[in-house]
Design a protein around this nucleic acid. Structure first.
Length: 273
DNA sequence: CCAGTATCCTGCAGGC
DNA sequence: TGCCTGCAGGATACTG
């Protein structure tokens, strides 16, 4: 579910509402997620701490405490982070609840449990595999210069390369599909078989679609909600993702669908080469 | 090196 | 109305 724009939308809202808040209560359930959630470590790290400015890296969120250490979060496919009144009903599958001194609660719910909730002591962040192996941020000033040559170096499909978090941090199935449609590149094409100029157009399209989606508060297909529980509005602007069988908005050809790099992919057989 | 598959889970839509 | 199947925005560990 949540790719970079959705996680960034949540991060911005957190920055407005939780910075400086003290964590007065920690309620954590020892559920199995990508890794088992560890209530004792979370309580030990978070209880009584004030929260600093939240950071995002790829699809990960890092909630630093002013003391030391950070809460590492990943929303997986169905994760939600919600800031709610204490009296408001909790969603099903709420695994972590931080009571803040404002009286609000920061809640993490994740029905499918593909997400991650992990306390990081100082120094652990650098050793965290998922974080340390991330590639460039799409809004890094070096992005346009560095990424196209890297994409040309590989014989993997360009779709697989866009989804590779070790190359580009934060792009998932929706925005990879959209950027390929926008730049007229067939998702199955090998990176090494695409001219550099076209790859430059592709990475610009990645930046554009991510920026537009952030401005719209992200894409909600089903599960995604922002910190307040509201849907993002970018779904109406999707041109390819989920539109297989419908006419291309560029040339009216019926969009096709197949599985590339293990993920459902919609594309136009006429516009994308 | 790379494609494909399976796995971890719940929930929902669609077919019958 | 119910049951069954397939599919879903992710990451990772396998196999061939």
């Amino acid at each position: 579910m949540p790719e970079l724009p959705e996680v960034e939308t949540v991060r911005r809202a957190l920055a407005l509402h939780i910075v400086g808040q003290r964590v007065d209560t920690v309620e954590a359930h020892p559920v199995k997620m990508r890794r088992p959630l560890d209530p004792a470590a979370l309580r030990q790290g978070l209880l009584g701490q004030r929260l600093a400015a939240p950071r995002r890296r790829g699809k990960y969120l890092l909630l630093d405490t002013e003391g030391a250490g950070s809460l590492l979060l990943h929303l997986g496919m169905s994760g939600r982070l919600l800031l709610s009144d204490r009296t408001a009903q909790r969603p099903a599958h709420t695994h972590l609840v931080l009571g803040l001194d404002s009286g609000a609660e920061l809640r993490f719910a994740d029905p499918r449990r593909f997400g991650l909730v992990q306390w990081l002591d100082p120094g652990q962040e650098e050793k965290e595999r998922g974080l340390a192996s991330l590639g460039l941020e799409p809004f890094d000033p070096d992005f346009i210069g560095h990424i196209p040559p890297l994409l040309r170096r590989s014989r993997a499909s360009i779709k697989a390369l866009l989804l590779d978090q070790g190359l580009i941090a934060g792009v998932g199935n929706i925005y990879a599909t959209e950027a390929l449609w926008r730049s007229g590149i067939r998702p199955s094409r090998r990176g090494s078989a695409i001219a550099l100029a076209r790859l430059e157009r592709l990475v610009e399209a990645v930046q554009e679609v991510l920026a537009e989606a952030i401005a719209a508060g992200g894409t909600t297909i089903r599960d995604y909600a922002n910190l307040a529980g509201d849907a993002g509005s970018f779904a109406v602007n999707l041109k390819a993702y989920g539109r297989e069988g419908e006419p291309c908005l560029n040339c009216q050809t019926i969009l096709r669908r197949n599985v590339i790099a293990g993920r459902s992919t919609a594309w136009c057989p006429k516009c994308q080469h």
